[in-house]
């Protein structure tokens, strides 16, 4: 069966007719052509497809698109503005916190959700938040450090 799904992604409203079995991940990538969100395992183990769904971090491969009718989704494409990187993106760039880049969109979403939930995270908070994001290249330390830097800055500036 196919269903109409109305969804707001990165502030833009979309409507699409999708089969019930289509995951949010495939809807983002194949229907809306928002390919920044990646597929790494399709079973909720790697975090490459992490997006923020109605304010909560989810693995988009573990959500059906039909479940998201009326929902608000944020993906890497909505992180930062055109030609202006977000603080997190900039920290990832400055800290060489990526290599092949395939896990980077998911990492950014996990970090963003954390910083909104806990603007002043401890190291353990950061590690817990990033632990669902598998990266085969970097060994994580640079990404953790990038999040740490943004958190520290946010703290200095009174948070968000």
């Amino acid at each position: 069966m196919e269903y109409d799904v109305r969804i707001t992604v990165n502030g833009e409203r979309y409507q699409a007719r999708v089969p019930a079995s289509l995951t949010l991940l495939r809807m983002l990538r194949e229907v809306l052509h928002l390919t920044g969100t990646k597929e790494g395992c399709s079973i909720g183990e790697c975090g490459a497809c992490s997006v923020i769904l109605d304010g909560k971090l989810v693995n988009a491969c573990m959500v059906l698109a039909v479940e998201c009718d009326g929902s608000v989704v944020r993906t890497v494409e909505g992180e930062g503005a055109m030609d202006k990187l977000s603080d997190l993106q900039q920290a990832f760039v400055d800290n060489h916190a990526l290599q092949c880049g395939f896990c980077t969109p998911g990492m950014l979403m996990a970090a963003r959700e954390l910083l909104e939930r806990k603007p002043d995270p401890t190291d353990d908070d950061i590690i817990e938040a990033m632990a669902g994001q598998i990266c085969r290249c970097t060994g994580y330390e640079t990404a953790i450090e990038a999040v740490r830097r943004v958190a520290r800055k946010g703290q200095a500036g009174g948070g968000k």
């Binding site: 920044g36 990187l85 993106q89 060489h96 980077t104």
Partner: peptide
């Protein structure tokens, strides 16, 4: 990194 911008923006 030369590829950083593309990779952090998706």
């Amino acid at each position: 990194r030369i590829d950083a911008l593309d990779k952090v923006t998706g």
